[in-house]
Nucleic acid binder design. Structure first.
Lengths: 229, 229
DNA sequence: GCAATGCTTCGATACGGATCGAAGCATTTG
DNA sequence: CAAATGCTTCGATCCGTATCGAAGCATTGC
């Protein structure tokens, strides 16, 4: 009895350490060259080439060629969601990981997930927006209230420009917090604004997002944690 | 750069066809013996034994021994969720599957997902409950309204008995519908009631759930599709 | 135009892991 | 108690796949 989609092939694609590392690196939402991905995975370019071919054929990544540079990115947020899902379960076995390094803490605190904010900060933001009724959960998805529209516009988000993007808001399950953070076009726009305002920046060699002192203050003011409303 | 939990090991566990088939078989929420799982995967008992050992060590399945029979079940709903997530992505590559058989249609229509109802029927039920404000989405999860409590009690669900179960309601992303259906203790109780009332039964050799004509009528009456409110 | 660089393809190698027959242990049944 | 049954372990085999050096092709920069 083989029922439903064939998950073994898909899982096997992710199940190679080199490929898993490359996919993880692409979760930041940025496109990386074949060479960069080879270095991420600690393998030669020729090995990376054959791996990337497999991921491409499996539709996990997409290619954009610029001259001799070949940029690969995740094929879409659905891929990122599956990877987060796997991380959530694998994280539950975290006791089995030989070393919980400082990087894990910074990832849990704030990290980029397909261009939007994840981790404790990501969940804090989402919760706050919901609590203040700026975002509203409906059976058809998440909508932005009029107050929410005014709020994010005041933060510098060009909502009209985002309207064409679907979905505007997407509920993205956070592997470290086991709760949702905000994905979708609005989630991406909000992170971009934080970067533009200098509240936070992306780490150079990690998916972690680092907030400045001022950025933390501004963030907490904009998205107050529970109990500070 | 190796960030976050190690997903490759977990994915590799799922990435073997035999193991994937066994995990899929366990998604019904029932426990199966080692022999039954061997037959599910089309391998010998000795091969199954070594596979099951790996899944056990990987904490994807849990063992309950009864004499010489060893019953294995999924370790929890988190595992089921990951499998559904993989199915969703793999299903998006459905064009690549060599044969879309009649079974896929029946699975899409109604199937069991870790003991609760999934597929079109599952999503219909969830949407209906939300639309009628019997379930309410809150930032802290899904709650049952007073009207919802009365409703499910009238259906025969012993809510008091479920109160100790956590979570009572859980939003479970449906791979075939790309929307959520209702998991958690209430989701399981509702499916059990449908079975008890004879509205529907589980297929013998599949995760598909088959509704009787009367069951369809009763189901649509209890959980009217959009437009029939 | 040539050298440097990025990337893919080819071919060979080595390793890991799925597989099953045989054997052994535990439980159940008559 | 003996036979049947369920399951695990052992050992051998074979296949698939990741890997990298070498070679080739395409692009870029001087």
């Amino acid at each position: 009895m083989k029922e439903g989609p064939d998950i073994s092939h898909l899982a096997a694609l992710i199940g190679d350490p080199a490929r898993a590392n490359m996919l993880t690196a692409l979760m930041s939402g940025q496109a990386l060259t074949a060479r960069e991905l080879a270095m991420e995975a600690g393998i030669t370019p020729q090995t990376a080439s054959s791996h990337l071919k497999k991921l491409q054929e499996g539709r996990l990544i997409a290619l954009r060629q610029q001259g001799r540079h070949r940029y690969f990115a995740l094929a879409g947020p659905e891929v990122s969601a599956v990877l987060e899902s796997l991380m959530g379960l694998a994280g539950g076995m975290g006791q089995r990981r030989s070393r919980v390094g400082p990087k894990d803490a910074s990832l849990r605190h704030a990290r980029v997930c397909y261009n939007h904010l994840a981790g404790q900060r990501g969940v804090q933001m989402y919760d706050s927006l919901l609590r203040q009724d700026m975002l509203v959960l409906t059976p058809n998805g998440i909508t932005v209230s009029p107050a929410g529209e005014a709020f994010v516009s005041a933060l510098g988000v060009d909502l009209a420009g985002l309207r064409t993007a679907r979905p505007l808001c997407r509920d993205c399950l956070d592997w470290s917090e086991r709760r949702s953070h905000l994905g979708g076009a609005l989630g991406r726009a909000l992170l971009a604004q934080m970067e533009a305002k200098g509240w936070a920046r992306r780490s150079k060699d990690s998916r972690a997002i680092v907030f400045t002192s001022e950025g933390k203050r501004q963030f907490d003011r904009a998205f107050p944690p529970q109990g500070l409303t």
